[in-house]
Amino acid sequence: MHPAPSVIIFTALSGLGFGLMGWLGVGLPAVSGWSAFALFFVAYGLAVGGLVASTFHLGNPKRAIKAFSQWRSSWLSREGILAIVSLLVMAVYAIGLIFLNQRWQIVGWAGAVLSLGTVFTTSMIYAQMKTVPRWNTPLTPALFFLYALAGGALLAGQTSAAVLLLIVLSIVQVVAWTLGEESFSRAGHTIETATGLGNLGRVRLLESPHSSPNYLLKEMVYVVGRKHVDKLRVIAIFLMGLVPVAIIVLLPNNQFMAAAAVISHIIGLFASRWLFFAQAEHVVGLYYGKR
């Protein structure tokens, strides 16, 4: 799949933002006043920034408001609605903490559940795609959850939780990459099943339907950069998981180190999210003799 920057930024940043909101909602850390303002500012900046970025890849952004209408069937619609509801509920909780010195814990819990629910709906946009076997697995929501919780813990300064979550995240990420290698062949799709000609013999594309790339090939059969996959995976695991863990465990605990851990994690997160899209193979490639 084409790794559109807007979609990478959207899933990465809004996941971090809603992850941080989850921690703030349950009162970890139990901030109020200016420090609450600072943390909520970061959470809203990430979540809203990500959501705004997601509209950049739309052909007709002016109609984006209609995307809130189809929650009965569409995960993308559910995601949009839950995101807005989460932001509104958390805003009530944040106003209490920042301006009134009141901790409305029930509102906070509700906001935390809604925030993580938003992350789940985001992940289901991808996990529901039977056409992309690498995404079509429970590991996709698991990964999105872990990225949100681990990144949120880093931002919220929950160091011991962050260390634990980052280690689990790194393991699950490696498992997902490993299982992902075989997912396409395990799903059983071949050029023979795609064309239905398998009972006649082995099928290969003799002539493409058109002389230059079309929308389908650009969007669904993205192959650029696949040769650097191994290097990028190592970079992603190091920066996203191991380096932040090492900083927290081995180095003195101060703001600069915390910032370094967060920046390292975010760069690793972007590398891994780029791979999430660039490596995903869509079954339509079979009609073009490609994967």
Partner: peptide, 9 residues
């Protein structure tokens, strides 16, 4: 669109 395939046994 029209694809063209070759089938070989």
């Amino acid at each position: 669109r029209v694809h063209t395939y070759e089938v070989k046994t």
